[in-house]
């Protein structure tokens, strides 16, 4: 399961629903968030740098609010990616640890994965990287409600 950037993938691949998600979620499109890739259970959304997301002009750091938006979107995508078919979900809560400042200029990439789905709730985690830095700038943990309750599955 290797990462193939979206532009190199043929149609009908697992990335397509994530791309669709980024297109129909207006604020993702506003910021320029796009589907970067899929690697097994993990999905990656990317946010290219632009001055609109600059949060500290003196120190040239990206605004944490833009990072949170990328994370919320990526975690939601990871849940949709993990579910057998599309269904409506809503963020219940989200916690973000900002491990280090995100320097302006580089594209941000959020790798997110769903690690548990129950009949009502789904859980996701994520790590955010900025181009040029090996260590994550942020990590997160989120839970989502499945808006249409599911019948309890055996096991």
């Amino acid at each position: 399961m290797s990462l193939i950037p979206s532009h190199e993938r043929p149609d009908g691949d697992p990335l397509r629903p994530i791309q669709r998600f980024c297109e129909v979620v207006t604020y993702c499109a506003t910021l320029g968030i796009y589907a970067y890739g899929v690697d097994g259970p993990k999905v990656c959304l990317a946010l290219p740098y632009c001055e609109d997301i600059l949060g500290d002009a003196d120190r040239q750091w990206i605004n944490t609010g833009a990072i949170t938006t990328l994370i919320d979107s990526a975690c939601g995508s990871a849940i949709l990616h993990a579910l057998p078919q599309y269904e409506a979900i809503a963020t219940l809560d989200l916690r973000v640890d900002y491990l280090r400042p995100a320097p302006a200029g580089g594209e941000m990439r959020c790798w997110a994965w769903c690690h548990r789905i129950t009949s009502n709730v789904a859980f996701a985690q994520s790590e955010v990287y900025v181009e040029g830095i090996d260590e994550p700038v942020a990590t997160s943990s989120a839970s989502f409600m499945r808006l249409k309750p599911q019948k309890r599955e055996a096991g």
Partner: peptide, 19 residues
């Protein structure tokens, strides 16, 4: 309009609210 997440409801993007 540009801050919307779910266009069906419609509702603000959770990230926009958090930001």
């Amino acid at each position: 309009d540009r801050l919307v997440g779910n266009t069906h409801l419609p509702a603000l993007h959770g990230g926009a609210v958090a930001s």
